[in-house]
Design a protein around this nucleic acid. Sequence first.
DNA 1: CTGTTAGCGCCTTCAA
DNA 2: TTGAAGGCGCTAACAG
Lengths: 344, 344
Amino acid sequence: MPTIKEVAERAGVSVGTVSHVITGSVPVSEDLRVRVQTAIRDLDYHPNHVARSLKTSRTRTLGIIVPDMTISFFPQIIRGAEFAARERGYSLIAVNSIESAERQTELLSLLRSQQVEGILLVIAAGSTTASEMMRLIDAGVPVVCLDRVPEGVPVDSVSVENVTAGAMGTDHLLQMGYRRIAIVTGPLDLKNEQRRLEGYQQSLRRAGIALDDDLVWQGNLRTEDLESMCRERLSDLSRRPDAIFCTNGPTALGALRAVRSCGLSTPDDLAFLTFDELTVDDLFRPAITTIVQPAYEIGHKASELLLERIEQGKSRKDVQTVRLPAKLRVRESTRKKPAHDAVN
Amino acid sequence: MPTIKEVAERAGVSVGTVSHVITGSVPVSEDLRVRVQTAIRDLDYHPNHVARSLKTSRTRTLGIIVPDMTISFFPQIIRGAEFAARERGYSLIAVNSIESAERQTELLSLLRSQQVEGILLVIAAGSTTASEMMRLIDAGVPVVCLDRVPEGVPVDSVSVENVTAGAMGTDHLLQMGYRRIAIVTGPLDLKNEQRRLEGYQQSLRRAGIALDDDLVWQGNLRTEDLESMCRERLSDLSRRPDAIFCTNGPTALGALRAVRSCGLSTPDDLAFLTFDELTVDDLFRPAITTIVQPAYEIGHKASELLLERIEQGKSRKDVQTVRLPAKLRVRESTRKKPAHDAVN
DNA sequence: CTGTTAGCGCCTTCAA
DNA sequence: TTGAAGGCGCTAACAG
């Protein structure tokens, strides 16, 4: 790889002049500029960002940690974040924590070592993040949490309006005539899951329906576990719900498999509603009514927030909390409950 | 951020000693090592990779460019590549070219500026890559192409066994009793698509079936375009195929929509087979028989190849070409053709 | 407008 | 086993 010095020699100027034409910070005469640019092209010269960063102590790089980019929600977030970063001349390093707290700690350290100027973080499910996050913040590393927001840490965050979305889903089911609505959640130490459950409860309360603990099926994020749990629950005929509301994708897949392996189908035997799309396209059956999160926008907005923090320096002390609305995409799985069934 | 100097001061040793305990390259007495490590922890010190890289001219970082990480095939590749890199102490920067040649050029330049030690590249569909790739290779940047392999460039590559996979799919359709098999492809300047078509042709030839140009439906990667093309083709009753074989996911989605909007269904009216999974789970209908590419393995293997190149220096001059086998996942959309239909 | 030069933080001889 | 010092490639004063 050629260096700035070689470019300078070839163009017959000093390194300073080359630097000036590259950064554009200082005016350079037409003549020299052309010579420098020619030399750059001839040599296929690419400025060494590493050296530049060392000098300027600016990398113009952000990091983003997601649990698992093979879950379609996250790539969308990353794309949004990448785009926003790019708009401001930053690049983005994306890494997977595979839902592991240790890995997340490593990655945080790695990103800091790489001198990223800020970090977008979707915290791993099992991680006790509070103290770690405080260390980050105390160290002055700009951080924005996405999707999952940690408890009791004064950090910027962007996520969906979970309570509203939870209520929206439940309202929809009620409106379609369902009354015994089971909610299948992931681990409730994830605040998101809690909030969605809250929305569900609010909606039922508003409708004057008694909350039934028997209809809150708490699980985890492992599809297989959820399937067996739901199968067990569903096999108890007397207590079977008439609708199932899942608070996330992996959970929903488990629940839906359970529904099928119990010989049931949706919407004939029960209605089905979930957060997050389960298929790439709605031509597949059963077509599942879904609460769609604005994933791209979440990433984009988070990136913007982070860049604001970075460029405004440590001046802003207030914590920003952005909540974006979800959308309900109605499909067959929640069609109106037939009247004669409603008598049950 | 504390520097190595501050650590040295706090530990009461010289920076050299601190460096020695960090890198482990030179033995340090128990006593001093402990003092240094304590200081590192107290200060929450993270070695500055930027400075280290400048000195050692090694970043232990790879770059990967994919067209679009929201297409589920690519995150799997990235995960595989990331894992292999991590196994050898490297990290991975993943970026999207959004199928744009210009963007790809920018990203290549960006990655080089960031001093990645090697690049994994899934070339963008429209890009005239040859000369650009040659420049890269001439510059001594280790490169491995994944999935899509450029023509006439001596570069390592890892992809699926396209011809075999194409033949495998066609064989399966033949075996299930289908004879008028249309193949729906993306742009044929993508070698992958060509090869899959080749496999299809081989299979038909082996079966003694005449090739029919009318059954080769060349399209692009835009689902909408494919839908209208297929709709038009399907509406000509007399020439309607009894099976459709799609060579990639976006194409398949278009074709499948067309099938439906023509009032047809699979497998009742025609069989349907495609490269790449269309749904997250096979509980959705129609359940589509799929040729599944070993995406994770492709990424993993490519990463290994690249690291080999990097660590063996420029010594190895041979071009490595790895082809991994695809798997056929049989589902309903290609069930055996009823005998009375076969008379047609 | 152009050239010269001092570091950025770290690693690596080299000498002690 | 430890410390001192040079320099990686670049930018940003500063001097001319």
